[in-house]
Design a protein around this nucleic acid. Sequence first.
DNA 1: TCCTTGACTTAGAGTAACTCCCAAGAAATA
DNA 2: TATTTCTTGGGAGTTACTCTAAGTCAAGGA
Lengths: 138, 138
Amino acid sequence: MYTIKEVAKIMDVSEHTLRFWAKSGFFPFVERDSNNIRQFSDNDLEWVRIVKCLRAVGTENKAIKKYIDLCIAGDSTIKDRYKIIQETKQKALNQMEELKKQLDVLDFKENFYRNLIEHNLEDTWNPMNKRKTGAKTV
Amino acid sequence: MYTIKEVAKIMDVSEHTLRFWAKSGFFPFVERDSNNIRQFSDNDLEWVRIVKCLRAVGTENKAIKKYIDLCIAGDSTIKDRYKIIQETKQKALNQMEELKKQLDVLDFKENFYRNLIEHNLEDTWNPMNKRKTGAKTV
DNA sequence: TCCTTGACTTAGAGTAACTCCCAAGAAATA
DNA sequence: TATTTCTTGGGAGTTACTCTAAGTCAAGGA
């Protein structure tokens, strides 16, 4: 059994966020001890893992709650859950593609600046530089 | 030259967001025509591209403003800008790694559910199921 | 000339998902 | 006993949009 602090450390999610998620109904099954303190089991950690995963991929909290509710509803919802996981996976793959594109932009920029630095060139691309050759020299 | 609407379409960023970014000082160089209407040049589109890229990778607007301000300051800040791009790239690479990990989690889950469906098994991992074998049968 | 369309402005409300602060209460330690 | 260390819940604050309102201005078509 783990306290919220331990879970925060193990799963690399802040205590704040875990409480927020708990309040959002993401962990309806986490037990409390006699002092009302949350006792996360190893199984609960897996639950945190999947919530973290869904969040990391941009799933809205409302949708995560729906997924949790399907889990609570029992085995009759397995196919629905399967579909959600598949869709989420597709979304993650799309994000991967998007991230690759942004990395290309950053690569281009990096090379652009490195070239300027190595050859001691002016940044003629910057519109602010163009304007210097006008009244703005003041 | 492009209107804000055209830019929104070309760069796939909403007009609202473009105005919001403009108000945030991300495009201090975009010209206006005699009717005060923004006229984005092709060069400005590149500016939108880099802002979009920085945002997509999670850079805070405050930090984006700083980068823009460095650009405005001129060629003396090229090394600073180079450093920012490098750091941003590293951040994007970290995100890529994180995304890959989450995809592993999703793969695992997908296989798990597929196995349940194909073999018509119960989800014994779900704590809600375990509880059924108690007082909760009611 | 009137009307529609599109762009502009400021201001403010609403939203998501945290993120932080704080006071209360229990337990552990000095 | 006093103090420190936790955990708890409530609620305020933050970021970055996102949307609506309310009004202005100018160009182009019927």
